[in-house]
């Protein structure tokens, strides 16, 4: 997946300023940055929800699985009904087989008939991710996927995402406020601030860029932003 000079303006305010980056098959990329940096805007443009003001994205909507920050599911429908509905809308060929696989992948097979609104936030998020994966997209975009989860649920989520990247060669791009997660699970991090892409590389490279490799990644990230005037 490649984004070339993607910009987005809302009136006179520039939300994204000529952001370019690429992600390989099976690579996990983390988008980090302070509030209002443009992370969600960039993801929504990559997902095809918003059109960029200028610039291009190499993948089409059909090739991208989209997992919004809030579970985009119907709480009055059951887990199975949600998956089947979106599988129909995605025109998935072998619908039942794919739904079964997603239930297994998310560990929710036993709760297939439960109304989604009665599930925990973590389980709802797992269904949210499963819906994003229904069409078997080569690229998966996740907007702060772990923000509403407890530590145990987070661990299961990242295990699932890592497996997708490793076994399915899915390209994963996710945004997060938890820089520890970015360090642990991402192959590469992109640092965005005020719509600008300030850094692209590994967590270790960011620490080195700050010049104090002995410090932890979160401290290096904060120092990096401070050095750049953010």
């Amino acid at each position: 997946m490649r984004a070339e000079a993607v910009s987005k303006s809302y009136g006179s305010r520039a939300a994204l300023k000529a952001v370019s980056f690429a992600a390989d098959r099976g690579e996990v990329v983390a988008l980090i940055g302070p509030n209002g940096a443009g992370k969600t805007t960039l993801l929504s443009i990559l997902a095809g929800i918003q059109e960029p003001s200028s610039g291009t994205v190499s993948v089409g909507r059909k090739e991208v699985g989209w997992v919004p920050q809030q579970p985009a599911v119907y709480r009055k429908l059951s887990v199975g009904e949600n998956l089947r509905l979106f599988a129909r809308l995605e025109r998935v060929a072998d619908r039942e087989a794919v739904v079964e696989r997603m239930l297994e992948l998310t560990g929710l097979a036993e709760r297939e008939g439960d109304e989604l609104g009665k599930l925990s936030g973590g389980n709802q998020q797992r269904v949210n991710i499963a819906i994003g994966l229904l069409a078997g997209p080569p690229v998966l975009l996740l907007d702060e996927p772990s923000s509403s989860l407890d530590p145990r649920q987070r661990a299961r989520l990242w295990e699932l995402i890592s497996r997708l990247a490793r076994e399915e060669q899915t390209t994963v791009v996710f945004s997060t406020h938890d820089v520890g997660e970015a360090e642990r699970y991402a192959d590469r991090v992109l640092v965005l601030a005020d719509g600008e892409l300030l850094f692209e590389g590994s967590a270790r490279a960011l620490e080195e860029a700050v010049g104090s490799p002995q410090r932890d990644f979160e401290a290096a990230f904060v120092a990096f932003l401070r050095n750049r005037g953010h």
């Binding site: 929504s44 997902a47 095809g48 929800i49 909507r61 059909k62 989209w66 919004p68 809030q70 579970p71 985009a72 599911v73 119907y74 709480r75 979106f86 809308l89 995605e90 819906i131």
Partner: peptide, 13 residues
């Protein structure tokens, strides 16, 4: 409110 709108209109409907 269910956040499904964005998912639906990005090519599904």
């Amino acid at each position: 409110e269910e956040y499904a709108f964005g998912r639906l209109v990005r090519g599904l409907v």
